[in-house]
Write a protein that binds this DNA or RNA. Structure first.
Lengths: 205, 205
DNA sequence: TAATTTGCCTAAAACCCTTAGGCAAATACA
DNA sequence: TGTATTTGCCTAAGGGTTTTAGGCAAATTA
């Protein structure tokens, strides 16, 4: 019986393509076996289990995203870098919704630490060097950018702004403008008296 | 044989609680049947199918979120309103991660239009009345806020900032500060010549 | 060529989803 | 109150996904 030539890499690649076609949720060991015209149990020689397969796809996606981001960032700085980084992120998500969903998979701390995700966040930090933020605010800004990019793209992908008034690409450009303006005008840490309830202490670490 | 007293409401409620305990992904018709000590098929008299059940949980979550937001907003405006809205959003997600995940379920356009989600976005718009944004920028700002809140909370929940340097709550407060500053200082639409060209003037205002 | 390793297969158990049809409890009605 | 109807949960059964165990043949190595 001719062999199918399965390898973890081919399974991961095919899984990523399948994810983009039918959604990451639908990527299943069975579906992949069908794709290679092979019995389901055969995949378990190449991949530990379903979760392992999904993790590999997630790592692939993170790798690709970091690669694209690095390329986009080369030779740019300031708003130019910010915009290129943002666009490449959004474009990837739109071109590869399944892989993008995979990249959102919750990884174990060790796996996450060894993934290209850290490269991606280092790049975010590098972009901030084009702005004049105090050291203590850097992490806040990194998290803001990460959250905003992810959140917007995620809402866009799930159809949030699909057929409503301003085109989503226009909003995206404005958001980049706004974030650039914000980073150039980062607010000082307000005097510490909490917010909302005037009489509350609210100090925390 | 004594009846279990199942209703769509009780199933939805129990499903929401189960989601918060074990994760929305693990909310299954079978698990719910076990919880009520009833055969699986019995649930199908009260709920169309698994997707219907999940949709109901999502709608419940959206309702609860909108209710909390409305309460938080009462009598506030400006940054006070923004911060209250943001905090209530994040707190809900942290207290009810399963429900929050449910609220992210992709709904059909009709279902979404009839959900409490529209109430929630109307409130976001209401908050913007405390700031001085041109009409044409309102939607962009609504999308920015929605994306940022969702994205940050989502990353936080999936463990992104768990054990790293500044406490996530501190970052959250700073993000609210930053968004407030941004809304008070919303950038003008830049002169239209695309972006990315290094020799561009970048004049604003 | 013989020995070993590797790759895919069959078999089988454990879950989950869903539909169809039945009996008994609850409710409505006369 | 007794009867008819509706409603609620059950059994049965088909189909899909995950995972483990054990086997045979193709590929690799000696």
């Amino acid at each position: 019986m001719a062999r199918a030539g399965l390898t973890p890499q081919r399974l991961t690649q095919a899984g990523a393509e399948l994810a983009d076609e039918v959604g990451f949720e639908q990527v299943t060991v069975s579906a992949l076996a069908r794709h290679f015209d092979v019995k389901v149990a055969s995949l378990y020689s190449h991949v530990k289990n379903s979760h392992d397969l999904k993790t590999r796809i997630a790592l692939l996606a993170l790798e690709e995203m970091a690669d694209r981001a690095a390329e986009a960032l080369a030779g740019r700085s300031g708003k130019d870098a910010l915009a290129a980084f943002a666009d490449v992120y959004r474009d990837y998500a739109r071109q590869h919704p399944g892989r993008y969903a995979a990249a959102q998979l919750r990884l174990s701390p060790e796996t996450a630490a060894a993934s290209a995700g850290v490269r991606h966040s280092q790049m975010t930090r590098a972009i901030l060097r084009g702005y004049d933020l105090p050291e203590s605010e850097q992490t806040h800004a990194v998290r803001l950018l990460g959250g905003t990019f992810h959140g917007y793209v995620s809402l866009e992908l799930s159809g949030g702004f699909s057929h409503s008034a301003p085109d989503s690409s226009v909003t995206w450009a404005r958001i980049v403008d706004a974030l650039d303006a914000l980073l150039r005008n980062w607010p000082d840490e307000p005097a510490h008296e909490g917010r909302g309830e005037p009489e509350r202490a609210d100090r925390k670490a």
